[in-house]
């Protein structure tokens, strides 16, 4: 009996150690390569992660928004178009919850790229944002060249192509512009998980360094 008791103490102590040691981290997605440099005579190997490529688009207020404008922000991106009758209303109904959750939090943004720039002018995007109930700069609706948008979608590891075809994923990007999660935007349960993951990401030490 006494042996059993000691065994129990040991197991408890071990599990307590495990809990405190493992701080939750989100995975880092995409390709990675090793870069070996010589610093001060020592060989140092670093991992270079896949990051979101450069872009320069226009938002719903007619302002220019580039990848640089998002520096220092954790953000969620998706691809949509305003006249989409199928999955977009569902995606943005769910995204609205994300918007409300982080409305008063700094360094967080939502970025929705239109894949139909011919119809979705700045004016159309502004009206769409207004009607959705979005104000301020926390949720940006971006419009750029069609081909550029398709190319950029690949950088986010999602699909967008001719004929207004796109998938419904929300992509979570960290302050180093690395992809940290992808969630089916049409599924409320996945979006709830994303909200939790955003909070986890915000708590990561890396994300608190001023960029």
């Amino acid at each position: 009996m006494r042996n059993l008791f000691y065994a129990l103490i040991c197991v408890l102590a071990l599990s307590a150690c495990n809990n405190s040691a493992s701080q939750k981290m989100l995975p880092i997605y995409g390709n990675r390569e090793a870069s070996t440099k010589t610093v001060d005579g020592k060989t140092v190997t670093d991992t270079i992660y896949q990051t979101i490529p450069k872009f320069n688009f226009i938002n719903q207020y007619g302002d220019s928004i580039s990848n640089k404008s998002l520096d220092g922000n954790i953000y969620v991106a998706d691809f949509f178009f305003t006249t989409c009758p199928s999955i977009c209303p569902v995606m943005h109904r769910n995204m609205l919850n994300v918007y409300k959750e982080f409305k008063n939090v700094g360094n967080f943004k939502i970025v929705s790229y239109t894949i139909d720039p011919k119809h979705d002018s700045v004016d159309v995007l502004k009206k769409y944002a207004d009607k959705l109930g979005v104000t301020g700069n926390n949720w940006l609706f971006l419009q750029g060249q069609k081909e550029e948008t398709y190319k950029l979608a690949k950088g986010y590891m999602v699909e967008a192509r001719e004929g207004n075809v796109h998938d419904g994923y929300f992509i979570l990007v960290d302050k180093q512009k690395r992809i940290r999660g992808s969630y089916l935007g049409t599924d409320p349960a996945e979006v709830t998980k994303m909200i939790a993951d955003i909070k986890t990401l915000q708590a990561e030490p890396d994300q608190n360094i001023a960029q």
């Binding site: 009758p85 199928s86 999955i87 209303p89 569902v90 943005h92 109904r93 609205l96 769409y128 207004d130 009607k131 959705l132 109930g133």
Partner: peptide, 15 residues
Amino acid sequence: QNCHGNNGEGLSALM
């Protein structure tokens, strides 16, 4: 349902 919602609630001032 996509536009008008699971409970017919619509979507903001859009639907």
